[in-house]
Write a protein that binds this DNA or RNA. Sequence first.
DNA 1: ATGATTTTTTGATCCAGGTCAAAGGAATTC
DNA 2: GAATTCCTTTGACCTGGATCAAAAAATCAT
Lengths: 173, 173
Amino acid sequence: MNVLLRAELLKRVSVVSFKRGEVIIDANKVNTKSYYILEGLTRTYFLKAGKEVVEYFSSENEWANSPRSWRSGKPDIYSVDAIENTSALCIHVDDMIFLFNTFPELDKYGRLSMITLLDHLIERVASFRFTTASEKYIHFKQTYPLIHHRIPLGMVASYLGISQETLSRIRMK
Amino acid sequence: MNVLLRAELLKRVSVVSFKRGEVIIDANKVNTKSYYILEGLTRTYFLKAGKEVVEYFSSENEWANSPRSWRSGKPDIYSVDAIENTSALCIHVDDMIFLFNTFPELDKYGRLSMITLLDHLIERVASFRFTTASEKYIHFKQTYPLIHHRIPLGMVASYLGISQETLSRIRMK
DNA sequence: ATGATTTTTTGATCCAGGTCAAAGGAATTC
DNA sequence: GAATTCCTTTGACCTGGATCAAAAAATCAT
């Protein structure tokens, strides 16, 4: 990696930790930071008719953030909290923008992230559109072998769009 | 628009027409072309357990293509055919690539298309995840006021992920 | 037009998975 | 280690929408 880039990164990034259950991003506030998980596990969720709906999980080497909030400068619907004690790199959006502007080689990384996101969404559409509850669960375990057992059942159910009771019954074979 | 770009475009684009029902892109063949609809309506679909599943419709000023096929050089799952008599601009991927390489100002257009696609996918996830059959239909009519009545019921049902019978009953109030 | 084909509607039946309610289990807290 | 809180399982019941089948309506080709 470019030496200058590394130097700028170190200058702009800090390490933060959160205890299990702690709120990392609050949907009621403007969020201007992005978190790159070093260790631990987070869940991004929003409220729908008073219930928490899980949008996705982030674990080691993944991002947790609220991009629409930092782009718009307003609160967005998503909150993030820690499922486990979690440590992460924290970077302010302004620094992020500075880095992207200063180091065009980062564009490749940005484009790649976008494609990863696209693939993920395409798969989610297919999941909700075509698969049964137990297919969803089997696929989830295959896709996230390292984290699926670290997440409370109810959150997995919410992520998969099925009820906790149904998922419990499925898991009991 | 850049005069040079306009000239290059004209050189590389041709107008083609298709009769209702005619196949525009065949999932069994490698596809190297993109179509920009001038007039008419197409449907992009794939086969799932022997049944045609509609992925999306394209009408005036929208694209119909098979991007994974032209990127991979192999056939992809998607076929496209004409719901109405349709005329379109046709451009070969190689020319597309040439234009993007030659005119960097097109990148903005590319990025915008990507974001449009992202938004569309996000909405589709939400649709399949949270909405009832009749909400889907109401939303579809609102979103596509200009084309919803031009598409056979069964195709709309397939696009929305509900059965034709159910959609028929919904439409009868 | 008229017969053929495609599309839509209607009826009957069925089931995956939701909801509600309550009881068990596990994990934290003091 | 008892108490509180959270998480998971189990049971009973219900419903939206799928499927199958067939009639009715619309559209097309000759």
